[in-house]
């Protein structure tokens, strides 16, 4: 069976940074497995600025940052379109690619599978199901990678950094959100974000407001919201369900010992890409020491 010192699962910012750092530390037998066609992770489809400060002391757009991380990792064995199906006993990975299913062994496995926004279903939000209800991640791929415009006047659910990222994505695509709905009494982003939302994009931010139900049939026509016991409707044609990140921990949950090393948002969700990279370097140091 093919075997390596380190196999990194996930070629996003954390995974690439782990591999890059390991090489700096002299560990060269490293393979990165990436299920998408290209490494780089989520920043690839965050078309707006705001990336890179924490790791490279430079502000870049998401795609530029992803490209920079790939450049840093140039020469490393990155296998794209390679999915890890499960982690099995004795540090063995069951993987899938164009040729079928096979196995790979590693002295050390690093899981850097990232995080995802929790879905509308996982939040048990009532109402109709519809193709115009989606996470920010899906919207960003549609807008920045596919140049599509799935709706014109959506509401944004959530008040985290990513919710404002959704706002910028909408702006880029000429989509005009009608409102941001934040269940919590306060937003979980810098204080000036909602101010900017209102002044720059004309989007009101409703805090302490619950999304009760999504109304419509074949299309979304409105959402029903509740604030201070009062219910009202907002006319809209889509819902962006943002934030409430959860780790992509399916592999970990099914894994048998020994436990893999965790990096990036997989380890604890809701970090910026730059923070993931900075942390991943320290994690790589620990892995390197463990191996020697």
């Amino acid at each position: 069976m093919e075997s390596h010192d380190v196999v990194v699962v996930g070629g996003g910012p954390a995974g690439l940074a782990v591999a890059t750092r390991l090489r700096q530390r002299g560990i060269t037998d490293v393979v990165v497995l990436e299920r998408e066609a290209e490494a780089g992770g989520v920043p690839r489809h965050c078309g707006h600025w705001g990336f890179g400060w924490e790791s490279h002391r430079r502000l870049m757009s998401g795609p530029d940052y992803a490209a920079r991380l790939r450049a840093d990792a140039a020469g490393i064995d990155i296998r794209t379109r390679t999915a890890v199906l499960s982690l099995e006993a004795e540090n063995t990975l069951r993987i899938q690619n164009a040729d079928g299913v096979s196995k790979l062994k590693a002295r050390q496995i690093v899981l850097a599978t990232g995080a995802r926004e929790s879905s509308r279903a996982a939040r048990l939000i009532g109402g109709v199901r519809n193709a115009c209800i989606m996470n920010t991640g899906t919207l960003q791929q549609l807008v920045y990678l596919k140049h599509a415009k799935p709706f014109h006047r959506p509401v944004i659910l959530g008040g985290e950094w990513v919710s404002f990222s959704a706002l910028m994505t909408c702006h880029h695509a000429g989509i005009r959100p009608v409102a941001m709905i934040v269940e919590e009494p306060k937003i979980d982003a810098p204080w000036f974000f909602p101010l900017g939302a209102r002044l720059r994009y004309g989007v009101p931010v409703h805090t302490a407001t619950r999304l009760v139900s999504i109304l419509g049939a074949g299309t979304v026509v409105a959402v029903e919201i509740e604030s201070q016991g009062q219910r009202r409707k907002i006319i809209c044609d889509g819902v962006i369900v943002s934030g409430k990140f959860v780790s992509e921990d399916t592999l970990l949950k099914g894994a048998t010992s020994p436990t893999p090393t965790l990096a990036g948002n997989m380890q604890s969700p809701l970090k910026t890409a730059g923070r993931c990279v900075a942390e991943a370097r320290r994690i790589a140091d620990a892995v390197a020491e463990g191996l020697s």
């Binding site: 995802r116 879905s119 279903a121 996470n135 549609l142 596919k146």
Partner: peptide
Amino acid sequence: LSGLKRRTRAMMGRCQGFNCGAEVRTMFD
């Protein structure tokens, strides 16, 4: 799109299309 989901399972899993939704929609369109 619903018919495509029923025929393939795409977008029907734990992420509900967070990861693949854009690609699947584009293929459908």
